[in-house]
Structure formats: structure tokens, C-alpha cells
Amino acid sequence: MQKTLDNILSRYRESGGNVISLLQETQDAFGYVPREAVQFFSRELGIAASKFYGVATFYAQFRLRPVGKHKVTACCGTACHVRGAERIMSGIQRELHVTDEEDTTTDGQITVEKVACLGFCSFAPVVLVDGAVHGKTTTDAVIKEIKSLRKK
């Protein structure tokens, strides 16, 4: 971890210092923004940790908790909404015993996320399972897909 953080920090210094890019690189590296990373940057740069958290909690992209091995992303855009996205989302959450807040299964296998819009509106409702697009999908189809993930 330390080596990665050093690299991110040196790129930050070279590029003139952009907190968002710094956090984006951190998340790319770890899947989330670890507390240790923020403490390290705060110490090295003399910027209060609250400033990093201010940015990290402002933007939807950043996560402060580890992400599961697999990721299920339910699109909640308008086109998906009118085609039952909410029902699919609650079906998945029920199946995996996760919530909006506690979005990762206890075994750390699967994270379920909502996203505002993926831009696949003509295939609504859409769910991404590990990045693969499942269009015009149903709760059952997604759950089946999730079960096969678990076997992998």
C-alpha cells in the first residue's frame, strides 16, 4: 500500500495538486478511499483530513468502505425507474441481505450499488454485473447471474 500511495503523492505534486484526481487515483488503486490513505496524504501535504473527506463525500464516485470482489450496479435513471428499477434493486438487496448503507455482503463477495444513469436507457431496466450490461432485465435474471458469480 505504501508504495502505491507514494506514487500517487508524487504524481499529485507533479501535476500541481488536484484533490479530486488524487482521490480518483487512490480509489482506482484500492477500490475505495482507505482511511490510512487520507491520513497519509493529510500528513504529507499539511492539508486537513476533513478537506479530503469533504470532497470524497461530496461526489457520488467515492467510497469510504472496501468494495466486494464482485460488483452489481443497478441503474436508477428515469427510463429504468419507470420500468421498475426500484423493484429490481430491492429484490437484489433482499436476496443478498444488503441495504443502501451496508451495501456489501458480509462475506465481502458482492457489493450492490445504485447509479444515477448509465446511458443505456433504450434497454431499461439495466443492471451491470461486474461491468457486463444486462438490459431489459428482471429481478430473477439478475439473481441468477449473482448466484453464478458466487460459484466462480
Binding site: 479530486i20 484526481s21 469533504g54 461526489y59 457520488a60 467515492f62 444515477a116
Partner: peptide, 24 residues
């Protein structure tokens, strides 16, 4: 510049703040 997911950044001054690395 990659946006980080904030609808308000469609507003010009918020977008500018975001490019500068701050909260939008």
C-alpha cells in the same frame, strides 16, 4: 478531466470548482 459524479457540476461555476479540484 474526469467528473466524479455530481449533478450540480452541470452548473458552470460548480463545474469550474470541480476542475480546480474542489467540491463542486
Amino acid at each position: 478531466k474526469l467528473g466524479a459524479g455530481a449533478f450540480v457540476c452541470g452548473e458552470e461555476t460548480a463545474l469550474i470548482a470541480s476542475i480546480e479540484g474542489m467540491r463542486g
